[in-house]
Design a protein around this nucleic acid. Structure first.
Length: 721
DNA sequence: TTGTTCCAGCTTTTT
DNA sequence: GCTGGAACAA
């Protein structure tokens, strides 16, 4: 067996991790140090050299994207189909176990996975039936509470009745929620993890089987695991030393959703024979960027300790720009990107990273104004869209009449005369008799207590579902979806909506049919589940990539969180202001502040060639003008790594700790205030003031039509009149 | 049943 | 200051 292909491209530390004998291993992989590569090569090594059979490998990630990438790379490296390997997300693998052993997990065979918005709906409805005022019991808070308990492995029955009224009420809600989910055969995301844990814990035979089967367990992004995920890993490895985890304590940015960075310390205690290997050589960024990032992260306490280095040179200084306001900030960034493109760079190599989604708007406007293609990440994903969820709810109800969440969603969508009153009656019957809404509806019909009109409407709905179920029999999956889309009259509903919005929804429904057509049933299905149920699960578990067209060359806009794991030649960290980044909600708490700092570290280390930091000296926030101070993180970068870009002769506040090198600027004189000019796009205007020099020189111009704008002279192609 | 108005809230996100 | 959701009126 030729192993050179597996180890030849690795550096010493990577090779050490890949070729180590089977043992518990913690690989501390810094940003850009080849983390995925180590994981992939390690698995290849175990199969090719250690003789571990492919089905003895388990690899767990957090996102579908990461799982897919890993599978693909192992396939490429070993030149074999990697189907036998269990590679997946924590949720995906938990789901697989539950499907295989639904009975032992005390779940109905047809259980359905609901996503967080489904869960929220269920909770809202539950609060209603419990007659709880949802301003006192905000559904989001309740959802958070329930998930937090489950994340810690705590069931309602484990909890002790307390004297605290609030606690007691929460517990009641939690208990009712569990009952409702059980009755409807619904499983939320955290439930997948918790139940998979209980499944193994309570069934020694099963546990033993899987412990034997999985000879090697691998975990990616280990710093992001929560309590229940780690407990599950411990069960599965059963005290043996076969757990190989890769992570970076400095990139732990999900503490707020339950990730326990402490799991790294627990790992070291629970697996005393473990080995730690640090990957510190970085293959992504310039020396300057790495040194600056190292200095920032060094301020955090209690790190495992790691310092990134590179042998590929110092590169450019980090550029810092103090904008007047958020408009100017956006203007600056967009102009720099245009300059980058003009010099032959790709737009897709440039990324604008911000702390919060709301910041994207300014940049979008400026990009749009300059007709620069861009793509905003985040926001609604395909399977999250209302129209898609409606269509899926029809399919769900066809598959499982007890799915109350789906029943409620579509019973009057599109409107068919089943109002709140009838729905309330149905709910009451369902609650009193502990039956599903579907069954309750039948009871209500038989009671003959409604008006004929309402009764007929309700009968009509039940008949529709039954009919669809019958007609769908024997059809291909995509034909079933098509049938539902057509017969549900959802298309007619959206046709009536305001032109473009409704049209888009109809297109999405068509796309859903297409997605069903392309759905790779054989690849996904191992649990002998019906094709439709498999597709529905797929929709919940994999909410769909939100970038539709990958092909156009676009500027990338995203939050710092979603940038993790990505790299760009040109990176703008914008909104570097106290209160924004670090976020106001985090500044009073050391732990949270440190997480913000790690976020800053993540952001900086995304940049390969050139990193820009920008902040605004005044910013409109919640409708008020604010004058934020530059972010402390900017000051934590030693001045020697920073060059300040100035467009004005005077700067109200110097920022960097050490006086940075400043690009010189002479107020230039090609145009003078009062000069009348003409612009290809904005038309005629008058120069108000000038600033900067050379390539930075720009003019503030009052256009007759377009209003007051700052224009960079090197791009604007102004004409004197 | 639909359109309007009012009001709270306002980090980060995957599954 | 804007947005989305819920309460209300027609």
């Amino acid at each position: 067996m030729d192993v050179t292909s597996i180890i030849e491209s690795l550096n010493d530390a990577q090779r050490q991790a890949v070729t180590a004998p089977s043992q518990a291993m913690l690989v501390l992989a810094g940003a850009g140090s080849g983390k995925t590569r180590v994981l992939v090569h390690r698995i290849a090594w175990q199969i090719k050299v250690e003789g571990v059979p492919a089905h003895g490998i388990l690899a767990v990630t957090f996102t579908n994207k990461a799982a897919k990438e890993m599978r693909g790379r192992i396939q490429d490296l070993l030149n074999i189909p990697a189907q036998a390997l269990w590679i997946g997300t924590f949720h995906g693998i938990a789901h697989r176990l539950l499907r295989r052993h639904a009975k032992q997990a005390r779940l109905p065979d047809t259980f359905q996975v609901m996503d967080s918005s489904d869960q929220l709906r269920v909770i809202k409805r539950l609060l209603n039936t419990l007659n709880l005022d949802d301003s006192r019991w905000p559904p989001r808070e309740v959802q958070w509470y329930i998930n937090a308990q489950k994340d810690e492995g705590i069931r309602a029955r484990h909890m002790i009745e307390t004297a605290d009224a609030h606690q007691r009420q929460m517990l009641t809600i939690y208990r009712a929620y569990e009952e409702l989910c059980d009755r409807s055969g619904l499983v939320d995301f955290t439930e997948l993890l918790l139940r998979a844990h209980e499944l193994l814990r309570d069934n020694p035979d099963l546990l033993d089987f899987y412990q034997q089967r999985f000879r090697q367990v691998h975990v990616d992004e280990f710093q992001d695991t929560n309590t229940i995920q780690y407990a599950w890993l411990r069960l599965l490895t059963g005290g043996r030393d076969n757990l190989f985890v890769v992570g970076d304590d400095d990139q732990s940015i999900y503490g707020w959703r339950g990730a326990k960075i402490e799991n790294i310390y627990r790992f070291q205690k629970n697996y005393p024979n473990h080995q730690v290997i640090k990957l510190e050589q970085n293959y992504r960024s310039t020396g300057t960027i790495l040194k600056a990032a190292n200095k920032v992260i060094a301020r955090n306490e209690g790190r495992m300790g790691k310092e990134l280095w590179t042998d590929s040179g110092e590169g450019e200084l980090i550029l810092l720009y103090a904008a007047f306001n958020e408009q100017d900030e956006a203007y600056f960034v967009v102009e720099r990107i245009r300059a980058w493109v003009k010099e032959g760079g790709l737009r897709s190599e440039a990324a604008i990273l911000y702390r919060s989604n709301a910041q994207s708007r300014q940049f979008e406007e400026k990009l749009m104004a300059t007709a620069t293609p861009y793509r905003v990440y985040g926001g609604l994903r395909f399977f999250d869209r209302a129209e898609i969820k409606n269509a899926l709810a029809y399919l769900r109800l066809i598959s499982n009449r007890n799915d109350d969440a789906s029943f409620e969603r579509i019973v009057n969508t599109p409107t068919r005369g089943i109002g709140i009153k009838i729905l309330d009656d149905i709910r009451n019957i369902a609650r009193d008799q502990s039956i599903s809404l579907w069954a309750a509806a039948i009871v209500l019909i038989n009671q003959r207590s409604m008006t004929a009109r309402s009764r007929n409407a309700l009968i009509g709905f039940l008949e529709l579902i039954k009919q669809l179920d019958k007609q769908a029999e024997g059809l291909e999956l995509y034909e079933k979806v098509k049938l539902v889309v057509e017969k549900s009259r959802l298309v007619e509903l959206y046709q009536k909506e305001k032109m473009d919005k409704g049209e888009e929804k109809i297109e999405n429904l068509e796309e859903l049919v297409n997605a069903a057509r392309l759905f790779d049933f054989d690849r996904e299905n191992e649990e002998s589940l019906g094709e439709l149920d498999m597709f529905l699960t797929h929709a919940a578990l994999e909410s769909g990539n939100n970038q539709a067209d990958d092909y156009e060359d676009c500027v990338q806009l995203m939050t710092l969180h979603s940038a993790k794991g990505l790299e760009f030649k040109l990176v703008f960290l914008v909104g570097m202001e106290e209160g924004l980044f670090p976020s106001q909600q985090s500044v009073d708490d050391v732990g949270r502040l440190e997480e913000e700092r790690r976020l800053c570290y993540v952001g900086m280390t995304r940049a390969m060639q050139q990193l820009y930091l920008t902040y605004a000296e005044s910013r409109r926030l919640y409708g008020r003008e604010t004058y934020p101070r530059p972010s402390r993180f900017v000051r934590e970068i030693p001045g020697e790594f920073i060059q300040e870009v100035r467009m004005r002769a005077t700067v109200s506040r110097p920022v960097a700790a050490v006086q940075p090198k400043v690009t010189s600027l002479q107020p230039a004189g090609s145009y003078k205030p009062g000069q009348r000019v003409s612009h290809a796009k904005f038309g005629e205007g008058v120069v108000l003031q000038m600033e900067g020099a050379g390539a930075q020189e720009r003019a503030q111009i009052n256009f007759k039509q377009a209003g007051v704008k700052w224009l960079m002279l090197s791009y604007a192609k102004l004409e004197m009149l």
